[in-house]
Simulated scan of single mutants.
Amino acid sequence: MNVERDLERAIEDLLAARSGTICPSDAARRVSPTDWRDLMEPARAAARRLVAAGKVEITQGGEVVDPDTARGPVRIRRVR
């Protein structure tokens, strides 16, 4: 089991199934329903890798933010 890849896949799958945004916790819960809190930072890291690959954007308050400097709650969406 490759948790990093599983989180990236979860983010991509969740976004494919929804028209809006997701929270990193959605991906963490998909990968580990009972221990998802331990995966919050890895889920954010997976989102940052997908940003670097040009697949997703990270937002706060509906605005795209730099994933390396964003603090607090973020949302993930497909690139527009």
Rank of each mutant, 00 (worst) to 15 (best):
D6F: 08
R48Q: 04
R37N: 13
E12M: 09
S19P: 03
L50P: 00
N2W: 12
G20K: 13
M40A: 11
I76K: 02
R77E: 06
K55N: 04
P42M: 08
A17Q: 12
R37W: 13
T69A: 14
A27R: 00
R9Q: 14
V31P: 01
D35V: 15
V74E: 07
V79E: 09
P42N: 10
R78D: 06
V3P: 00
R5T: 13
A10R: 05
I76R: 00
D38W: 13
A10D: 05
A43R: 01
D38E: 15
S32M: 09
P24E: 13
E12G: 03
A53P: 00
R37M: 13
R18S: 12
E4I: 14
V31S: 03
R9L: 07
T34L: 15
P33H: 10
Q60E: 07
A43H: 00
D26E: 10
R78Q: 07
A53L: 13
E4A: 11
R80M: 00
N2I: 10
S19I: 09
C23P: 03
T69S: 14
R49I: 02
P24C: 09
D6L: 07
R37Q: 14
C23K: 15
M1Q: 11
V65A: 05
V56E: 01
V51E: 05
T34H: 15
V79F: 11
G54L: 10
A46W: 05
G62T: 00
T34Y: 15
V65I: 09
R48L: 04
L50Q: 05
T34E: 15
A52K: 11
T59P: 00
T59E: 08
D38Q: 12
A43E: 03
D26T: 03
S32Y: 11
R29K: 15
E12V: 06
V64F: 05
A43C: 06
E4Y: 15
